[in-house]
Computed example of a mutant assay.
Amino acid sequence: MTGPTRFPAGTPQIPQQRGEQLRDTAVRYAEERRWDVLSGAWLEALDGVERCSCGAADCPAPGAHPTGRDWVNQATGSAVVIRRMWARTPRASILLPTGRTFDALDVPESAGCLALARMERRQVELGPVTCTPGRRMLFFVLPGAAAKVPDLVRNLGWPPNSIDLTARGEGDYVVAPPTRVGVRGPIQWARRPTAANRWLPDAEELVSALAYACGRERR
């Protein structure tokens, strides 16, 4: 995916992804967006190969997952606590719990690009959107989306499990830029957090375009 749809013009509130210290970026997410933040696993070099700090050779998300079972209660919006987290593990990934200040609609990158272009033409108000090295796009929406999406998709004529559109809500998380995911590269912003998109859309405003794009990809 190339062009302005993926990397829009404009000055972001959140610092540039490359060269920015993870700690400082995490603090800005908390201070500027009021997002809760959690430090996660990170990548370590072992015999010239980067592996996840969890030590699992078959880790499904190297350097990008929680490190403890009680991670939900460890996530915080306190800049002081966030600095302490990264003082202990400076290379930790940045994780943002969903179901609190936002949920996330998760779709394949190809469908996300199609839907994003369509919504831009229609001047739909969008929140932040991330792109992952695994070719997924996540659209930030108001909390509660995870409970709504199955019925919204069904009302559009799609059995919920027939298209690759899911919602991440309470008890889940997203990995935030500029975290690197294994050897595949960093999480990036397709739509950066700015003052203009501080107010998030409801899932209902985006589901139609996203479901259409996912359905078209399925066909």
Rank of each mutant, 00 (worst) to 15 (best):
S53D: 05
P143Q: 11
R136D: 04
R121N: 13
L152I: 10
D106E: 12
V174D: 08
V27T: 10
A146Q: 15
M137W: 10
S110W: 04
P8E: 10
D58Y: 00
D47A: 13
R28S: 10
T101S: 15
R168Y: 07
G3Q: 09
R69D: 12
G99F: 09
G144D: 14
L200W: 06
P150N: 07
A146F: 09
E20F: 02
R100G: 08
G134L: 14
W189N: 06
L156G: 02
P159W: 06
A146M: 06
R28M: 13
V129S: 02
R88M: 13
A213T: 03
Y173S: 02
V183G: 09
V174Y: 00
T101P: 01
R84C: 04
T98S: 15
G3T: 02
L96I: 15
T5F: 14
R154M: 12
M1I: 04
E32I: 04
D172L: 09
V129Q: 05
C59T: 10
G157R: 03
R69M: 12
R118F: 03
T76M: 05
R154F: 14
T67H: 02
V141H: 07
W42Q: 04
T194W: 07
G169M: 11
A26C: 06
A45M: 14
S93Y: 13
R184C: 01
F7P: 00
V174R: 03
E170T: 12
A211S: 14
E205F: 01
D164T: 01
C113I: 15
A176Q: 07
L105Q: 04
L116W: 02
Q74V: 07
A57P: 03
A61C: 08
E20K: 01
E205W: 00
T2Y: 07
L142H: 11
G40V: 04
S39G: 10
V149N: 06
D47C: 03
M137N: 00
S162N: 05
R69Y: 02
P201L: 10
F102V: 12
V149Q: 09
S110A: 14
G40R: 02
R34L: 13
A209K: 01
T11V: 10
T67E: 12
C131I: 03
T2R: 10
A64K: 02
W199V: 14
A104L: 11
A45R: 08
V175A: 02
G134Y: 04
M137E: 07
T130A: 08
Y173A: 06
C113H: 11
